[in-house]
């Protein structure tokens, strides 16, 4: 049954309807709830690392403020903007999917993916900069914080947490790009239609979540303390 005719009626048994659900609506609700529960899990996952962050931030406010100066706020802000726009295009993609506008859906998914990739490229430049400045702790790399030796030890903790948090976030972005690619294929081959847009919707939930994580990380890592005690 082609997607065009499947919209006709429930009785025709939509190809995406699994055997253990009575209707697509039920199936979609279950899928959405599942994604929400998964996102709660994700909150706790990042929460553990943020807990470490907040404890050390309160112990070593000076070092954290000092170290956050070495992050590139401009690039961080650009990335923030990129992700916010990608959230918008993702929302447009969901809208297009619900209306069954396949062309628009594909276009918006593509834009979202391009923006996501842009974020990762910028992040890559930032990581490279850390490498050049010897601000990568561990890995046997030289760590140089001689400008403010009093913070040398604890700045390493800041950068450790920075790499853990942004690394996990980047990993989530990469997973997100994978999901978007998959959704693009489904959009292109007609699996997604007006009645079966929930895969796009729940992928959208995930994408927005990953964006929101960044909205938290950006101020926590780049901005807080920048103009407070850390400024010399």
């Amino acid at each position: 049954m082609s997607p065009e005719t499947s919209a006709a009626a429930e009785h025709h048994h939509h190809p995406a309807l699994a055997h253990h659900f009575d209707s697509l609506a039920e199936q979609n609700e279950a899928a959405t709830l599942g994604m929400w529960v998964f996102l709660v899990t994700e909150v706790l996952f990042f929460g553990g690392a943020l807990m470490a962050y907040s404890i050390y931030r309160s112990w070593y406010p000076g070092a954290f403020a000092s170290a956050s100066h070495h992050l590139d706020v401009t690039l961080g802000a650009v990335n923030t903007a990129v992700l916010i726009v990608s959230s918008l295009t993702m929302a447009m993609a969901v809208h297009a999917a619900q209306l069954g506008e396949r062309g628009k859906l594909k276009a918006f998914l593509l834009i979202t993916m391009v923006l996501g990739a842009t974020f990762l490229v910028v992040k890559g430049f930032e990581y490279h900069e850390k490498y050049v400045e010897h601000h990568i702790p561990g890995l046997g790399l030289p760590f140089d914080y001689s400008a403010e030796p009093q913070f040398a030890a604890t700045a390493q903790i800041f950068f450790s947490i920075y790499f853990v948090l942004t690394g996990l976030h980047a990993l989530h972005m990469i997973v997100g790009l994978g999901i978007m690619t998959w959704m693009y294929i489904w959009a292109a081959n007609g699996t997604i239609d007006k009645d079966y847009s929930s895969p796009i919707e729940i992928s959208g939930l995930y994408w927005h979540f990953v964006d929101i994580v960044w909205i938290f990380l950006f101020p926590l890592l780049y901005l807080i303390g920048r103009h407070a005690s850390g400024a010399h």
């Binding site: 070593y60 030796p149 009093q150 913070f151 040398a152 030890a153 604890t154």
Partner: peptide, 8 residues
């Protein structure tokens, strides 16, 4: 003594 510059 060990890391004197942490809390001057």
């Amino acid at each position: 003594i060990l890391t004197p510059n942490m809390k001057l």
